[in-house]
Design a protein around this nucleic acid. Structure first.
Lengths: 139, 139
DNA sequence: CAGAATCCACCAGGATACTG
DNA sequence: CAGTATCCTGGTGGATTCTG
């Protein structure tokens, strides 16, 4: 069994929250699940830049952290659906706020972040899809 | 000059926000600055687990991203004060929400996170200090 | 007191292949 | 369709040292 060598800082509320959201795709996955994108294959379609393995890893972590729960349908081919727990739902206002903040300041942020020599190019995303799905649900 | 080899995903609002908050101490630093802990030495005292270098790196990044601004007093010994820009202030509701969410769910989260085999021990923090400073200001 | 340069350990995340 | 095992690379953050 693997053992982390460096202890994490999880004492302060900020750090606890940061820890739980720590993962390249976790906020996006929570967002997706909240919008009824519940199956791993659908999430992969939504986040084509992620790999199956990484999504599985992060989903497992979030399940272990009590943010999502997993329902397995004993079929062939197998079917799995994730859903947000109450704890996961309670996180959505923060996710939404992050989404809105980023969108509101997009033009400025893209400018300053792109000046950052660390960043070379931007990649396409499926966030518009999120929004489309969202609107479809409302209709 | 260093060039990042892997492009980042910064297209979606969520990713933009994640990008600017991406750094072990950034939320804590924003929180500190918002509570009038403006000088690097004071931040170091507040976050004794961080090193001068890392704080400086993350402060520089946040300055480049327009979240904070820096005032240099031409003295000896040198004196520097950081403060939040309007953009930085606009992020504080999110930081606060993260802080509150973590505190509200602390008991549960500490349980499940500690079960996580990746984590070995918890480290002390200065978050209580934040709150004390905050209350002192109000008094 | 503040900052920058160098060096490096660690680990998150990606590639790939295989199983049920 | 979903999950897991193995291997590997890049980069974050820490340690140390030196400057003004």
């Amino acid at each position: 069994m693997y053992e982390r060598k460096i202890p994490l800082t999880i004492d302060c509320g900020l750090h606890l929250t940061k820890e739980v959201l720590n993962g390249k795709w976790k906020p996006a996955l929570l967002n997706a699940i909240s919008m009824e994108v519940k199956r791993p294959s659908a999430m992969l379609r939504l986040l084509p830049e992620a790999t199956r393995r990484v999504l599985a890893v992060q989903l497992n972590e979030m399940e272990a952290h009590g943010l999502i729960s997993k329902k397995i349908y004993p079929q062939l081919p197998p079917k799995v659906e994730y859903s947000l727990t109450n704890l996961g739902w309670s996180l959505m206002p923060i996710i939404d706020a992050m989404n809105m903040w980023g969108d509101q300041n997009r033009s400025f942020l893209e400018k300053v972040i792109r000046q950052d020599p660390k960043i070379r190019e931007t990649s396409k995303s499926a966030c518009e899809l999120h929004r489309m799905l969202h609107l479809q649900k409302k209709a």
